[in-house]
Design a protein around this nucleic acid. Structure first.
Lengths: 150, 150
DNA sequence: TTATAAACCTACTTTGTCAATAGGTTTATT
DNA sequence: AATAAACCTATTGACAAAGTAGGTTTATAA
């Protein structure tokens, strides 16, 4: 379950991607446009600035802007940063000591596989893709044949 | 993020799938074998019984057993039942009034697509598959060609 | 028929996170 | 010097996840 944090972060990044690249857009403006609480957004943007996905400029005329061009951001990194992790299962989180049942765990391979699918999906989509409405995904047909769409 | 409820439910179902089919297995036994709090499991099993995925028998010599054979259960239905939903995004939950930004939401198609992938993944795996260590998944090659494994 | 083993039921607790709010401090511009 | 902005620290309310506690009903077996 992806929380508002990650979803809002994405929307802000997309919002900024649609602004003039050299201009700093104030938080007030983004919050108003996106209909999100200004104070809450502040918390989210702090993370994005700290991790250098955004540049913040203080003072009058200040605001936020992207530090790269839209095709250089993946949805995956944005979500992972703001959500803390993309891992769907506690035992697959990085830095967690391995479950002692891991060896005999009959479900673990499935969770690992799922995790990989999730990761691949989001890391293959860039902000630019979203702006273009171009989502690279897979279709699984009735006949169980998977193939990429184009 | 999938919670213990869903994960425990799956483990219990698999545990029962490995017992003799006509025997009723008491909760005590399952809990001990799986290393899960008996009282907590009780809550989870109640749902599974109510939804007819399990049959519960009271009294001495009672316990739980499957109502179908393992290949007739999908991981998806078990998770959806115990987790409440498999939807990863609030606005995609069934019974939720559509977001008013839906029309202009640039991220919605991505979430919808993701939702479908999640759904497909879990509904294509049966308990029998797990017992066999047979997880039907997709590989996405370096060359971006998706194909099913076999 | 009585002891026992089991599911079933209601209620509570603890802990933590999400989402948001409040108010102040620093920095740059005009 | 006034103003507009990011930045910082702390707090709150609501809710859910995870688990606990103790009692009630039902079937089996002695």
């Amino acid at each position: 379950m992806i929380s508002t944090k990650g979803r809002y972060a994405l929307r802000v990044m997309l919002d900024l991607a649609q602004q003039e690249t050299d201009r700093f857009t104030p938080l007030d403006e983004i919050a108003a446009r996106q209909g999100i609480s200004k104070k809450y957004l502040e918390i989210i943007l702090k993370t994005l600035v700290r991790e250098k996905l955004l540049k913040g400029l203080r003072g009058k005329g200040g605001g936020y802007r992207l530090t790269r061009s839209p095709h250089e951001y993946t949805v995956g990194e944005i979500l992972e940063l703001t959500e803390g992790t993309l891992a769907t299962i506690a035992c697959l989180q990085t830095g967690v000591e391995p479950c002692e049942r891991a060896d005999s765990c009959i479900t673990l391979p499935m969770w690992k596989q799922f995790d990989r699918i999730v990761h691949d999906f989001f890391y293959r989509i860039t902000l630019y893709d979203l702006l273009q409405g171009n989502i690279p995904y897979m279709i699984v047909d009735e006949d169980q044949t998977a193939r990429p769409t184009e």
